[in-house]
Design a protein around this nucleic acid. Sequence first.
DNA 1: ATTCATAATTTTGCATTCAAAATTCAAATT
DNA 2: AATTTGAATTTTGAATGCAAAATTATGAAT
Lengths: 225, 225
Amino acid sequence: MTPELIPRRALHDELADRIRQMIIEGDLQADQKVPEKDLCARFGVSRTPLREALKVLANDGLLVLTPNRGSTVAGVTEQDIQDVFPVMSALESLSGELAVQNMSDVAIAKLQQTHAAMVKAYRAKDLPLYFRLNQEIHRGILQGSGNAALIAVYDSLNIRITRMRYVADMTKDRWAQAVAEHVVMMDALTNRDGNLLSEVLRHHLENKRETVLRWVQKSKKTKVK
Amino acid sequence: MTPELIPRRALHDELADRIRQMIIEGDLQADQKVPEKDLCARFGVSRTPLREALKVLANDGLLVLTPNRGSTVAGVTEQDIQDVFPVMSALESLSGELAVQNMSDVAIAKLQQTHAAMVKAYRAKDLPLYFRLNQEIHRGILQGSGNAALIAVYDSLNIRITRMRYVADMTKDRWAQAVAEHVVMMDALTNRDGNLLSEVLRHHLENKRETVLRWVQKSKKTKVK
DNA sequence: ATTCATAATTTTGCATTCAAAATTCAAATT
DNA sequence: AATTTGAATTTTGAATGCAAAATTATGAAT
């Protein structure tokens, strides 16, 4: 494996980002052991900054560190889903309320454009593009709340249940429904209807919950260790 | 300074706990520089595990690490308060709803006892004891939600605005009001009235917000660097 | 062949070391 | 006296080293 050199910046920070990304992307799978040596080779760094990154990721719940036995990737359990989604729902609700209060007309107009592009991607059945734009919109609303604590906390939960793999598990119906909900979202936003935006965001999240849950249940069967 | 030896357990974990505690207790003050050497001497450890702990605490927003310039204690700003409390409020609300659903009668009865002891401490004007029991009750309700994600997220926010110093800033009136709210809380809990519990928890938090805000504004004037 | 004991190897936890950056201090100039 | 320049010192970032724990491999006994 050729050591992939990392551009300058605090190494532990960069490493944490990279490894986080690997977990989300599925390059590191749930319950997989992650020897330090491998990651050091992978990134061409020594163990010192790597271990700093591992501690941070463990603190965020993405890795499980067992003393003297190294790190494993934390899986997404049904319990996690049961716990995380109600909290995210409450946060979405707040996010919607704050976004309609704080977003500028310009910011909303920009989201409208992204939304239009996303609908186009949907019609073209371009799943990767759709997904990217979809994420962009959700992030736009969250950012629109103007609340740094909300954003940080939401992200920390979202990352614990977001894995690229489950995207494939979205059914045609659900996809159509998701797009329909996005239309309502944009309406609520332009009309600055906080209650409606909150409600549709929560409903939208509920659909995500079901998709993630199905994915977790499926992969539970697959990996009969 | 005599090196205070630490009982066995992952050092970085223990260190993170200790330093976190020092920040809450005010042993490390806002914006204070924290040279690694000092902390190493303080705890009798090398820089390796210490730095791991620092990275984790920085990730939690308790420290600010500036590359090549070390760590400083993150202060509580008015902006932090503005951001953090609305999120905590939403979480308190959820916590209340879940607690009435999930807590056992036994657990509620235990909280009642703690509550009685707290009222007694209030009557005796024993502020430290009152504070300890008060925290115990709030933790009991949060735990009563049975939601690990909620607890983790709440804690992460709470720790960013909780500093022992501001306790002193509570006025007589506010103290009395806080106790009165606690009475309502316990009623709501025994009657398993989720809406009421949510409401009183949020209201209670609002009072905390004002106390913390006053403390931050006061200490802003004090430390004219 | 399976189980157990024990030796060899690997991996982890933490201390130490070294280079680079930042800070401090002192002398020199104005 | 104030400012500036540059060396001496301190502090940080990251690699290396070393001991302890865990894992794997080896071989003997059943």
